[in-house]
Design a binder for these strands. Structure first.
Length: 773
DNA sequence: TAGATCTGTGTTTTT
DNA sequence: CACAGATCTA
């Protein structure tokens, strides 16, 4: 039974074997913390702890699922099934459904996603007649979110003059009022936003001692993964639940705290030892994941941070190749480099696509990578970004489904009351909203009671409203007798959603119909799957609950693909080959996070996370110019590259001239063979070449570059304007005539018939051409 | 009222 | 560029 203990090293075994009490495990990157958590749970169960009494909180659903799987392998699946394991949000949503009535919520409350919340806030700002340029809904939303995460309720807000003053100072004196209206509206709609799931859990545990006791007794052993990323609200929940038995084990790494922007408080982990009696501290410092080069390079970065717990991450793994750094002209070329590098590595080392990950700071960067991978026919998958359930057509269907479960759901109703178009316009909706606010009812209820409410709408509109409500009601009735799939299928057809898309006929419309079909299939699968679980019914409400908190990461595809994701999403994952792209100032570190030391340190931790995902080889790339908000802008290499000790890096480009070189100077190489400028061509497996090139090497490299004189040289603008039929002159091929223009922007090519060279295809960006006519 | 078209505005990261 | 909101037209 306990043979698995032999699979742990001494440092890992110690926290596994401490059955009771409070403990903190500071686990360096790749040091096997998941292993410690799973084995600890298995050990507790082997010592007779009932799985019903174990609560394990993870950061993602995926992590929970994986841990459960691993535990099943050790203790058997029937036992593992009873563990409470999941994210804070999903576990406590479940608990809140059970206890909802105590807080005045229906048990079928809706969970608002960010978009729902933001739209509602936007509507409230408009209703209140406030200036939308001062009260920007996104800002207001994040302000409210941070209040909630700090447990500042509306009441607490108005009792705290400092907060009011702070908001008044930032020209938003009515923020408290918006907050109040927003909370009221959510309550009336029977809806909780993401932050409410934590805030209301706190409220529940605070206001109802008997509920607190019930769950304290239930969760005798609590484990929290990624503790460094907990916010105040989560911290208090954990504190309250563990207070009685104090059997709490938190695992984390302060060096990997990357969620301060959503309220994560690094002090939760730094101060843990003060929060409980006799806290045992364990450190996992041996990294099993990465090569020495990667581990040491990562250490050399994180050293630059001032706020940190002391720990030394080390590895017994081989040195491995150095980190390859490359500079590219544009984001398009960056993509092409990454794609061909992946292609070469795959061929040379017989690797599958799953060995590679491309990590970036912002979702928008995925585009260039996608394009390049697609051209190379390398299968890939984008994680995160817009999740399937957030797509317009999917959210439309889901909104109908939400509405038939909870007709008070304002966000859902507003979304679909006139989609597909049924003649209920903005004016009518405004009237409904006013009526709803004055009578303290939901919009749906207002329509239900049109006989008693003078809405000042004509009879046609009145009919349309009644028809809509009746349609939703008929769906509700159907839902009582039919399974979730049948209901969803009926909704998709009867509402005219699918018809509307069919009518549209564009490829996008077709894709949307396919997505809806996929959703319906998903619901069918869900219904089938739930039937096998004892405590589930496969109801529509269950499906919606599942979907509200599902993320893109959770979906398994089973095919072999290169993974593309933000660095945030990559936390906890590992890949043999990792490409970190967009290593540029203003992008990484983000321009929004360079103002304070702590923000910059978080960016640095993010870089640390990125690098430590790599097992064998890491690549860093940056560009000289990249498309941002639709325009090509100059970029500058990230300071983080310089922060890595040079001996861990292998530059593919000379390092003398990269700062602030505008495109036009560096790119017009004429017919100089660009590859000569590259010092080495990287091939994984071959011994890594020297570090930064020496001064002497640099001088040599510079000589390769011809002195460009700009006189007589066509400016890039002229060349880009080139049209078919133009006469041009090339420095070597002589005069010629433009036959054809291909491609756009940076990739624009011209087919030219030269007197001395015949027909050539030239990339205009590089071609040294003079426009003659 | 619907739908097309224009304008403006902002963009980090996520449960 | 991408999306939200405003404005215009039928």
């Amino acid at each position: 039974m306990e043979s698995y203990l032999a699979e742990l090293n001494d440092a890992q075994r110690a926290p596994v074997l401490q059955k009771d009490g409070a403990m903190i495990v500071i686990a360096g990157a790749g040091s096997g913390k998941t292993r410690v958590l799973t084995y600890r749970i298995a050990y507790l169960m082997s010592k007779g702890v009932d799985p019903f009494n174990i609560l394990s909180l993870t950061f993602t659903n995926k992590a929970a699922k994986e841990m459960k799987k691993r535990i099943s392998q050790i203790v058997g699946s029937s036992e593992a099934k009873n563990l409470w394991m999941g994210t804070f949000h999903s576990i406590f949503a479940k608990m809140l459904r059970f206890e909802a009535d105590k807080l005045g919520y229906p048990s079928n409350f809706t969970i608002y996603d960010t978009q729902d919340s933001q739209r509602l806030i936007s509507a409230i700002i408009k209703e209140m007649g406030l200036d939308k340029d001062i009260y920007k809904y996104k800002q207001v939303y994040s302000r409210i979110s941070s209040y909630k995460n700090s447990l500042i309720t509306v009441k607490a807000y108005f009792q705290n003059p400092e907060l009011k003053e702070a908001d008044a100072m930032s020209k938003k004196p009515r923020l408290g009022d918006i907050y109040k209206n927003y909370v009221d509206r959510c309550f009336k709609a029977g809806a909780m936003d993401f932050d409410d799931l934590l805030l209301k859990t706190n409220e529940l545990l605070n206001r109802f001692p008997e509920v607190l006791q019930k769950y304290q007794n239930r969760f005798r052993y609590i484990l929290v993964d990624e503790y460094q990323d907990t916010n105040h609200s989560q911290y208090l929940i954990v504190k309250a639940l563990s207070d009685k038995f104090q059997n709490i084990c938190v695992v984390g790494d302060d060096a990997q705290s990357i969620y301060a922007f959503r309220g994560a408080n690094i002090n939760n982990i730094l101060n843990f030892q003060k929060d409980y009696d006799n806290v045992q501290l364990y450190r996992l410092e041996q990294n099993y994941r990465s090569t020495k080069n990667i581990v040491n390079a990562a250490n050399s970065i994180i050293e630059k941070n001032k706020t940190k717990l002391e720990k030394v991450v080390w590895t017994a793994n081989e040195d491995g190749p150095k980190i390859i750094v490359n500079r590219l002209l544009t984001d398009g070329e960056e993509g092409r480099f990454v794609a061909s590098s992946i292609f070469e590595n795959k061929m040379q080392n017989q690797l599958d696509n799953g060995s590679f990950a491309i990590l970036y700071r912002t979702n928008a960067q995925s585009r260039a990578m996608e394009d390049a991978l697609r051209k190379r026919e390398i299968p890939y998958r984008i994680y995160g970004g817009l999740s399937f359930y957030q797509r317009k057509e999917i959210k439309d269907v889901l909104s109908y489904l939400r509405l038939l479960i909870n007709p008070n759901d304002e966000a859902a109703l507003k979304r679909v009351i006139n989609y597909p178009a049924r003649g209920i316009g903005q004016t009518t909706i405004d009237k409904l909203t006013i009526a709803a606010n004055t009578y303290g009812k939901s919009i749906f209820e207002v329509i239900e009671n049109l006989d008693h409410i003078d809405l000042k709408v004509n009879s046609g509109t009145r009919n349309k409203l009644t028809n809509f409500v009746n349609m939703i009601k008929s769906f509700s009735i159907l839902n009582e007798n039919a399974d979730a799939f049948t209901v969803a299928d009926t909704v998709a057809k009867k509402t005219g959603l699918v018809q509307d898309l069919k009518k549209d006929g564009t490829p996008e419309g077709v894709a949307k119909i396919e997505n809806i079909e996929e959703l319906l299939n998903g619901i069918r699968d869900f219904v089938e799957g739930q039937k096998e679980l004892a405590d589930a019914t496969g109801s529509l409400a269950e499906f919606l609950e599942d979907v509200a908190l599902a993320t893109d990461m959770d979906k398994e595809t089973g095919d072999d693909h290169v993974a593309l994701m933000t660095i945030h999403l990559a936390k906890g994952l590992e890949f043999p080959y990792v490409y970190i792209v967009g290593m540029e100032e203003d992008l990484f570190p983000s321009g929004m996070s360079m103002n304070t030391r702590s923000e910059l340190e978080e960016e640095r931790r993010l870089f640390y996370v990125a690098l430590t995902r790599a097992e064998k080889q890491a690549y860093l790339t940056y560009t000289q110019s990249r498309y941002r908000w639709g325009k090509l802008v100059d970029a500058e290499p990230s300071r983080f590259i310089d922060e890595i000790e040079g001996k861990f890096l292998d530059y593919m480009i000379p390092q003398d001239d990269y700062k602030y070189k505008p495109l036009i100077d560096t790119d017009i190489f004429g017919d100089v063979d660009k590859s000569k400028l590259r010092q080495t061509k990287p091939t994984a497996g071959s011994p890594p070449p020297a570090h930064k090139p020496s001064e002497e090497q640099l001088r040599k490299l510079r000589k390769l570059r011809p002195a460009l004189d700009h006189t007589g040289q066509a400016s890039i603008k002229d060349v880009v304007k080139l049209e078919e039929g133009n006469e041009v002159e090339h420095i070597r091929f002589g005069k010629g005539k433009v036959l054809k223009i291909d491609g756009i922007g940076q990739d624009k090519k011209a087919e030219i018939n030269f007197e001395n060279g015949g027909i050539k295809k030239l990339l205009l960006r590089f071609a040294k051409l003079k426009l003659l006519s």
